[in-house]
């Protein structure tokens, strides 16, 4: 049953991403993007990363993409009237992209060590993890625990990053007064 769910959600993700890329209307593209993110969150649920699924929907699909939509509608861009696959430049570009794709897939499946088709491991309920890596759990507690012990430094730095991004946005989007 879950296999079927995986295939369904994966298909929707890919198709909506593709639609986003080729749609001439930017708003349509943004909405397709939101669909793609939501199905990605569904995939996270399938991978038993429940907390991340919620974060994905809240932050990524809910805030980032909405911001995108605001800006698209603010700038009021026209429809992209260029014919995508007609001129030589884009033809060449698409060939390059496709070849990259093929190479990526071949690299993923070729090579010396064949990744074994592993099934999902049974989860461990122990939130506190000692030893090499914090063991995988589904509870949000382990996220908090690792964030404040092992990944304290990146946590602080990210906070700082957010602060500077905020200041940067304010500075960049200020309208300059015309008397100076």
């Amino acid at each position: 049953m879950t296999d079927l769910l995986f295939y369904v959600f994966a298909a929707i993700t890919l198709i909506s991403a593709l639609l986003m890329v080729v749609s001439p209307n930017a708003v349509n593209g943004a909405v397709c993007m939101i669909v793609s993110f939501v199905t990605t969150a569904a995939l996270f649920v399938l991978l038993e990363a429940y907390f991340l699924a919620v974060i994905q929907v809240l932050v990524y699909a809910g805030a980032v993409m909405v911001l995108f939509l605001f800006i698209i509608m603010l700038l009021d861009v026209d429809k992209d009237t260029s014919q995508l696959l007609k001129d030589k430049m884009t033809l060449g570009a698409s060939i390059v992209g496709f070849s990259l794709l093929v190479i990526l897939i071949c690299a993923a499946f070729a090579g010396g060590q064949h990744l074994p088709e592993t099934a999902l491991l049974p989860v461990a309920e122990n939130p506190t993890g000692e030893g090499i890596g914090i063991p995988f759990t589904t509870s949000a507690k382990s996220y908090g625990y690792s964030l404040f012990t092992k990944y304290m430094l990146p946590f602080q730095v990210t906070g700082f990053l957010l602060l500077s991004a905020m200041i940067g946005v304010i500075v960049v989007s200020k309208k300059h007064s015309t008397d100076s």
Binding site: A49, F51, L52, G133, P135, F136, Y151
Partner: peptide, 15 residues
């Protein structure tokens, strides 16, 4: 992260 049984991958997704 899921297939290796650790939390590190999930944490990195946060960032």
């Amino acid at each position: 992260s899921r297939y290796n049984g650790t939390m590190d991958g999930n944490l990195f997704v946060f960032f």
